[in-house]
Write a protein that binds this DNA or RNA. Sequence first.
DNA 1: CCGTTGTGAGAACACTGTATCCATAACTGG
DNA 2: CCAGTTATGGATACAGTGTTCTCACAACGG
Lengths: 250, 250
Amino acid sequence: MAGQEHQPGVVWNRDRRVPRRQAPSVERIVARAVAIADAEGLSALSMRRVAADLGSGTASLYRYVASRDELLDLMIDAVRGEEEPPALTGDWRADLTAVARRLRADLLRHPWLGSELTGRPTLGPHSLRHADVALGAATALTPDITLAAHVVDTVLAYVFGSVAGELAEAQAQRRTGLTEDQWRASVGPYIREVIASGAYPLFARRVTEAEDPTPDQRFEFGLACVLDGVAARVHSGGRVAAGPDSPPRQ
Amino acid sequence: MAGQEHQPGVVWNRDRRVPRRQAPSVERIVARAVAIADAEGLSALSMRRVAADLGSGTASLYRYVASRDELLDLMIDAVRGEEEPPALTGDWRADLTAVARRLRADLLRHPWLGSELTGRPTLGPHSLRHADVALGAATALTPDITLAAHVVDTVLAYVFGSVAGELAEAQAQRRTGLTEDQWRASVGPYIREVIASGAYPLFARRVTEAEDPTPDQRFEFGLACVLDGVAARVHSGGRVAAGPDSPPRQ
DNA sequence: CCGTTGTGAGAACACTGTATCCATAACTGG
DNA sequence: CCAGTTATGGATACAGTGTTCTCACAACGG
């Protein structure tokens, strides 16, 4: 069908021997794969599809990439390298906020990224760079590297979970092939029934009464909470391996 | 190969007409599917596999379940209904902690659950019950349903992200088919090279110097941070739709 | 005893990732 | 400028997948 025209930009030349027509090259393969996954989701990303878009044979890709799994690893690091990590200012709160926002932006820009990042240890150079910057931000809060590491882990865990929820609806739409309106229309009666049943009073209150801030506001609220929390823990001489249920200091 | 013996327990009889040999029934299908996904991961969960385990034909499953996707929805709610949600005590911090721990336990017991929960709105009866209990815990902290909802969202986002990281290594092992030792051995030299390069000083410090608390301790540390944070935000008259970068009150 | 109906499932379709194999295009030595 | 070698692209094949169509058979009502 389509895919006869080659994507503009990225005219990266291979170092030796120019290929006869349009050699795949790892970079072209990865870029194409990212484009497909961004536009149509991970389930649409098949080796045949990438090869077709690139105008090459399917089996040829395996000369540049060992497997689909390795391709995903390369995609992850390529995406993490699209932009530089934020520059550190020394203000731990501002820096950790910047790190969190950058990660969220990456996850939103590439909706497939979250489900792939969580699920494998990420050791590519760009991922390591981000990890290092995040640790740098946290060490301005506490010099204890163990504590700083867990502060970072906590903040990033929130970001992952938050964005996952943010993307849930969009993912469901893509999966079912319905638009948001269609989906709301199909689920609406069931929701009303659930509310009318009275079995879930607080869920009902939430659906009917609660305001609906923008996704940005929700994210920033939770992020501010998490940062408040780590600051409180760290300043009160917190250790990671504390008792399981230490009460808050207020 | 195996699968000729029927699983014990669950002798749920269909209400009308007893089937000739071993009618699938939705419950049996879902239970079998959960068992497969738990033991061998989501990728091993195929309709053919479930049917083979059940000793029935593949196509027969579609008489009880509309699609693989619907089966996953049923699996999610079945798993969420395995145990009752925690009973509320009125102590918001203890209750939210219990809710978070229960969710973590569910996610750890069924490693496939996280990637499926995030990615679809969850509206089954058991999921709704959990949502209602979580909101109940948070309304003891603040009567504002909007604020309570976002407190819950923040806590659960942390739990999802935290457990996802916790499971990452295990998932990678399953994917690559390596044991933990094999994986460490294969990655070790690369890690040492990364450290030796000096390009990622803080990452290097983390790997070499940082202590390694148990997963439980890491989870509890982050959870305590998050709960400290929401308490601080809420008590200081927090609103969700605040400015993007409101400083902490200390 | 027969007919109706509901149910299980065989076979097929359009996909997927991956391995094997081979003809050919491109580089290298002369 | 030609020949040899090697690297490379790709057709084909295999073992899977979710899903659907269709049909035969078993269990019920009469």
